[in-house]
Design a binder for these strands. Structure first.
Lengths: 277, 277
DNA sequence: TTGAGCATGTAGTAAAACTACAATATATTC
DNA sequence: GAATATATTGTAGTTTTACTACATGCTCAA
């Protein structure tokens, strides 16, 4: 939460920045304050504080307070520390898993439910869903495809630039493209996004929220990559992306109701019966 | 907080007890609700809810909300709870991510470094590494392949039964097969394991530790799947498998020394230079 | 310089939390 | 068993808080 604020501080208006800086400086006080108190302490008007909250992708001041309280009561235990060449195996196990846990914990704290709702809204009416990702994100896209198709929606995965661009060229209204990209900086992804959007498709980016890709997309599901402090540090962001898409799938299943759950049940059943055989 | 409530439940009035029981049953929802919503959900009047808060020694409903939110973001609350059909989006986000976090936390606790060491030992001398996985585990295998090949070892991924069996038939000493399987029950995997082992290959199973596959393998990296309490609960075990393989890769990189780290550096470099372009 | 567009504040509204008090239920004493 | 006292709960109103609509003023471009 605090990271989110400090990251996005740059593209705020001056009043919003003032609020953000104050919150970063007095996080505990901020969490316990009312809207009027924050406005007073920062010397801005109440609506400006609300605008600040909305800018963060939150619903309003209420949600801001809740998120901040959550963030401040989170344990600092799973902190990221770099793997060193002389670490024992037990050290490595702890460090790598802690980094991954941390990635999920911060995702949990920063994922705005409004964005999920918007995404679900787009997906419920979708004619088809296309999951796209290049390189390591390709695996996430494929995985997601494998997961969403069980809901009975036509799904496919595109994991190389030519396919992605070709699809973007023939995209149509009703198509939803979910683009997974850790940094959101590959220009192929961005080009495809712009192209497909012009054609009327909805683009959901699972990506670093301040990236060019995020700016080009309709809906952003933020997935902050952990700083790459070390050569050995693996991409924990991949886990976060998978978890975000898990969440989206479950929410979508709930939104679709009976029909989707029946299909889920059927896909589970067919597996377990094969196992017994 | 929740303990406090359940402890004191006995000396509450019947209305207060009704509120307390509901809060214990739906803690997340309670933390996100307004006074009126709680009153409505429990079928009592608003002042009664306030009296309930006061009875807990709190200032009012506001403080109750804050305390509850704090309590729920403590680490002990990353407990697995099933997604229900009437959950809000925020509930789903929390539940799904909590389940995933829980999977990693328990993996961290249970992963024996001796098994990692044994696996690294086998891998350092490997002529080639083959990652195998069927269904959802196929993605994990592919992902691992993509990750390990950067160390400069020949890697491939097999994600369908015929390929797996064919490879098992021609396996040779020096080959290491890493089989990913959530339940470790597909007989194709087990057959392939036995076959390849007879031919002198080393088999590492990333799987439920008490499964038939685990028994057949040389080395077991335990990955206990979270109980599938609900239809909606996605496979958190997949995340655990990925994290275990992350750990293995980092440990292997350290064991291989200079040469491997140079290669890792090179693969990172080529990506970041493309990004800038 | 003027006008479009954006940032910000003012004033008002809706809703949330809280209070005072009345009504009902429960216990107590004769 | 009746009458009174006490405790419990709800109703109706007040205050506070969060939010909205709109107006003002500022910035930048033509």
């Amino acid at each position: 939460m605090l990271n989110l604020i400090s990251d996005r501080l740059a593209d705020f208006t001056s009043t919003e920045r003032r609020v953000g800086e104050w919150v970063l400086k007095h996080p505990r006080q901020a969490a316990a304050s009312t809207l009027a108190e924050v406005a007073n302490a920062t010397g801005v008007s109440e609506p400006s504080v609300i605008r600040f909250c909305r800018r963060l992708g939150l619903d309003g001041f209420r949600e801001f307070s809740r998120r901040l309280t959550e963030a401040l009561s989170q344990p600092a235990s799973y902190l990221h520390s770099a793997v060193a060449a002389d670490d024992t195996t037990a050290d490595v196990v702890t460090k790598v898993l802690d980094a991954s846990i941390q990635a999920l914990v911060s995702t949990r704290a920063e994922l705005p439910s409004a964005a999920i709702d918007a995404a679900v809204n787009a997906l419920t009416g979708a004619r088809q869903i296309v999951f796209a990702g290049l390189g390591a994100s390709g695996h996430v896209a494929t995985d997601a495809c494998h997961k969403f198709f069980r809901l009975g929606i036509p799904c496919s995965a595109l994991i190389d630039p030519p396919s992605l661009l070709q699809f973007a060229a023939i995209a149509a209204p009703g198509d939803v493209i979910v683009i997974v990209s850790t940094r959101g900086a590959w220009h192929e992804s961005i080009d495809a996004t712009k192209l497909a959007r012009k054609a009327g498709a909805v683009i959901i980016a699972v990506s670093e929220p301040r990236s060019p890709l995020a700016r080009a997309a309709d809906i952003v599901l933020p997935c902050r990559p952990a700083e790459d402090t070390s050569l050995y540090t693996p991409m924990s962001s991949r886990l976060a992306q998978l978890a975000v898409l898990d969440t989206l799938q479950v929410t979508l299943a709930l939104a679709l109701g009976e029909q989707a759950t029946d299909r889920l049940r059927a896909t589970k059943q067919v597996i377990s019966s094969r196992h017994r055989a």
